[in-house]
Amino acid sequence: MTSTQPSSMETREVKKKEINERSFIRKLLKNRIAAFGLFVTIFMTIIAIFAPLIATHAPNEMDITHSLLGAGVDGHFLGTDNYGRDLFSRIVYGARISLIVGVSAVLFGAVFGTFLGLIAGYFGGKLDSLIMRTMDGLFAFPFILLAITLMTVLGQGLVNVIIAIGVANIPGFARIVRGQVLSVKEEEFIEVTRSLGATHGRILFQHVLPNCLAPLIVYGTMSIAGAIISEAALSFLGLGVQPPTASWGSILKDGKDFLVLNPQMATFSGLAILITVLGINLFGDGLRDALDPKMKV
């Protein structure tokens, strides 16, 4: 009798999931705004991947004699920057940095944050208070300030940017996962699995973690948007990737000094950030409505 119980429960679970998945996709597609967000996100990803094919010039190719050209002059679609580099090509290449940092930093934060949240919520007690006190401490720093502080110590560079924004992302993920674990932990099927002699690791990764996925995906998506803005902010402050690497934030930083001579630099680099972030946020909003309507980010 007891041996058949888990299996029958499993089939029930699977069935429920299938129905959920179908209604999830339906909801997502029904939401045209979310679909538009997804479209923008994919569009930007394609630009990032195929940057060499889309860019009209090499992004770091300098030509001081042709600096600060206006839009459309000499085959420079958006003109050139103060070093005579093609602005359009730099913005196209900038998409790479934004998306690489956005995705990697969030993955970094998600992996560590999820791990910490899982063990804090699951084991509770002193370990929980130690971890969550630390997370509260990290939360006390404004996100961008934490990243700035880390960057001053780590020094410029792509990997360091990812680490800095990644670390700043950890507490958010830890909190969300811990909350989910606490609510999942008490549910019946966890009790059953435990009574059947499953190890902690198995329970955590096979039973608890999958139940945290929906909020994780929603939060993760929104966090990518935040990470992209943070990268741009760091580069804007001169703390991001090493020059001459093209990043939207660093183009904007340079553009700020040439607002009168060449307003396109600041305008279009920022527009690129806005459009990408808006796209991801629209998609994230739709994901939330479809996956986890109770959540408020």
Partner: peptide, 22 residues
């Protein structure tokens, strides 16, 4: 408000300077 939460404020600041100051 959706645009508002997605806007990089350092860009917005620069744009405000461009239009309202410059």
């Amino acid at each position: 408000s959706l645009i508002g939460v997605s806007i990089p404020i350092f860009w917005l600041g620069v744009m405000l300077v461009l239009y309202f100051s410059v």
